[in-house]
């Protein structure tokens, strides 16, 4: 196991734990997305490129998108006291 892999694993654990403790839902989704990105690199490092591609496409892309759309749908993207940013969604 190389140093890079150990570092990535530490980041992975940090991301996984911090998702629980982040109050802002949008930030939690973004951290979850970085978890998937790290996971994709780790799949590549144990020689499963098929899984890496799928993880990158589904884990980072599609899941994050659906999460954000759901947050939008339940009006959770509005910041407290502030107005919703209309440019993004």
């Amino acid at each position: 196991m190389t140093t890079v892999e150990i570092l990535l694993l530490l980041f992975l654990i940090a991301c996984a734990i911090s998702v629980f403790f982040i109050k802002n839902l949008l930030n939690a989704v973004i951290v979850f997305m970085s978890y998937s990105t790290i996971m994709a690199v780790l799949w590549l490092s144990i020689e499963s490129p098929d899984l890496a591609i799928t993880e990158a496409a589904v884990g980072c892309g599609v899941t994050t998108l659906l999460f954000i759309l759901t947050l939008k749908k339940i009006n959770a993207l509005k910041e407290e006291g502030g107005e919703e940013d209309e440019r993004t969604f």
Partner: peptide
């Protein structure tokens, strides 16, 4: 590496 599932997800 890859295939229908991952490629389809990228196109989508």
């Amino acid at each position: 590496p890859g295939g229908g599932f991952s490629g389809g997800a990228i196109i989508g």
